[in-house]
Write a protein that binds this DNA or RNA. Structure first.
Lengths: 258, 258
DNA sequence: CAGCACAAGTTGGCCAGCCAACTTGGCCCA
DNA sequence: TGGGCCAAGTTGGCTGGCCAACTTGTGCTG
C-alpha cells in the first residue's frame, strides 16, 4: 500500500483530490444517474486502492459543493450533475478548474495601458489621471472556451501582470508571490448579451445570453487589486452559495461575551 | 443567554465540534491576539486530550469559516473576527423588495399536492411516498412581473402554506409565526431558457434567457423547509455576493445602470 | 558581514482499524 | 395481515502512527 501511495505521489496532486475529481467527473457525466446512489465508502476505497479516510476526504469536498448528500446509515445520493463553482474557490478560475479535474487554460488577447475612466476610478479607488492596465483573456477548460475575462488592474498590480508571459495560466498565483493578496471580493451576477468580441472568442452568436460575473477584489487592507468582468457561456458554469443566519449569530454571541 | 449557543455547540456530540467551538471562542475573544499564532496541532491535541486528527477536523471548520490560515510548515494564524452581515434580505423576496422601496406583489398561479419525486425527496430529505405541496407564483415589483417562483414544500410547511390566502404577499412571515424558521440556504445561480409558462407569465418570448436561482432552505436544525426555483427576467435583478477569507455573504439587489 | 547549509518544528496527507449511530429490509409473531 | 424486533449495511467519528513538504531560525563558512 505504501508503495502505491509513493507511486501516485509523482503526479504532484494529492490522492483525495484525484479521487474527488474522478468522482465529480463520474457524477457530472451521469454515471450514477440523477438522484442515484454512490457506492459505499468502503467500495470506493477498494476501487481506487486508497484508504476509507482518503475517500471520505474526497467526499467531503463533493458535499461542500452540494453535489452529494451525506447521511448516516444511508448511501450517499447524487443531488445534481451541474458543474458548480463554489465560492470558496471563486477567487481563482485556475484553482476552481483544477479542483474539478479540468485543465484550465488562458490566452491573453490584449493588454493595454491607459488612463482610468470614471467608473474604473470609482471601483479601484484611484486618483483622477491614474493609468490602469486592462487585459482581455479567453479562458478555457480542457481546451474548450468557456469564458471571456476583462480585468482592470491598478498600477501596482498591473506592473506585475504586464511582466507575466502571455500564456501563463494563473494570475493570482504569481501575484501572491509578489505580495499581492486576493482575499476579499464583491461579486455581482446577472445576464448580458454577447457583443461582437464575446461572440468571436466564445464561438457563439452575437446577442446570445451570457452569464456575467462582475468582481471587485481587494487585499486584506481593503485596497482594490482587481476589477473584472467575466462572461460565461451558458451551461458551462453555475454559481453556488451557502449562507446561514446561524454562523453570524454565533459570532455575535462571541462578541457579546467579552 | 450568550452562552446558550456555545453550550449547544459544545454539547452537540462530536468531539471535534466541541474543540472547534472552544477555539472559535478563544479566537474571537482575542486569546491568541490579533493576527496571532495558534498553538501547534500537536499541542492542541494534547491540551484537549484528543488525537491530532480530531484537532485537524476542528481546524478545518475554522479554516472553512475563514477564521485561520493554513499553510504547510508554519503555525496557523488568526485572520480576524469581523463578521456582521444581515441575511434577511436574501431569504425573503418580500423583505428585499421593501428594503429597496419597491412594493412587492405575488399572485398564486397554482398549488397542488402530489407525491414527491426522487429528486424532491432527496432535496427535502423525505420518506418515499411522502406528499409535497408545489406552488407556482408570479412575483411582481410595483406591479411589474419580474420573477416566476416554483417552490416545493414538505408536508409540515405545505399544510400551513395551503391555508394562506392566494394573494398573500409574503410566505415566510406567516410561516415564522407558525414556528417555521428560514435560516440556512444553499443557492445555485445559472441561466435557463424560458418555457411556455415562464413566457406567458413574464411576458417574454419562449426560449429567451432567464436568470435562475435554485434554493434549498433549512431551519436551524438542518431540516429542509423549502426547495425552490426562481426565474428572473434579465435586467430586473442581479445577485451580489461578498466573499472573503473572513466571511461570506450573499445579497440580492436591483440592477443598476453602469 | 553576507550568504548558505542544516536541523528542528509544523502542517499536509495517508493508512489501518475500531466503535457508535443510524437506516433499511426481512423475519417472526400475535 | 400488520406491527414490532433484529441483523446487516452504511456513514460519522476517533485513534495512533507514519512520512513528505515546507518554513524558519541557527550556526557555520567564505
Amino acid at each position: 500500500m505504501t508503495d502505491m501511495a509513493l507511486d501516485q505521489d509523482r503526479a504532484a496532486g494529492s490522492l483525495y483530490r484525484k479521487v474527488a475529481a474522478d468522482l465529480r467527473e463520474a457524477i457530472t457525466s451521469g454515471s450514477f444517474g440523477e438522484a442515484g446512489r454512490l457506492p459505499a465508502e468502503g467500495a470506493l476505497a477498494e476501487q481506487y486502492g486508497v484508504s476509507r479516510g482518503t475517500v471520505r476526504q474526497a467526499l467531503a469536498m463533493l458535499r461542500a459543493d452540494g453535489l452529494v448528500t451525506s447521511r448516516r446509515g444511508t448511501r450517499r445520493v447524487v443531488l445534481g450533475t451541474a458543474r458548480v463553482q463554489s465560492f470558496s474557490e471563486l477567487l481563482s478560475f485556475t484553482h476552481w478548474a483544477r479542483s474539478m479535474g479540468e485543465e484550465p487554460g488562458g490566452r491573453l488577447e490584449s493588454l493595454i495601458r491607459r488612463p482610468a475612466d470614471a467608473a474604473e476610478r470609482e471601483h479601484l479607488r484611484l486618483e483622477p489621471g491614474t493609468e490602469v492596465y486592462v487585459t482581455l483573456r479567453l479562458r478555457t477548460l480542457s481546451g474548450i472556451p468557456v469564458m471571456v475575462e476583462r480585468t482592470v488592474y491598478p498600477p501596482r498590480v498591473g506592473e506585475v501582470v504586464a511582466e507575466l508571459p502571455a500564456d501563463v495560466v494563473s494570475h493570482t498565483e504569481p501575484l501572491r508571490e509578489h505580495g499581492i493578496l486576493f482575499t476579499d471580493a464583491d461579486h455581482t451576477i446577472d445576464v448580458v448579451a454577447a457583443n461582437a468580441d464575446d461572440a468571436r472568442l466564445l464561438g457563439c452568436r452575437r446577442g446570445s445570453p451570457l452569464l456575467r460575473e462582475k468582481r471587485r477584489t481587494t487585499d486584506p487592507t481593503g485596497t482594490p487589486v482587481e476589477w473584472s468582468q467575466d462572461r460565461y457561456l451558458p451551461g458551462t458554469v453555475a454559481f453556488s452559495i451557502h449562507n446561514s443566519l446561524a454562523s453570524s449569530a454565533l459570532s455575535r454571541h462571541a462578541r457579546e461575551s467579552d
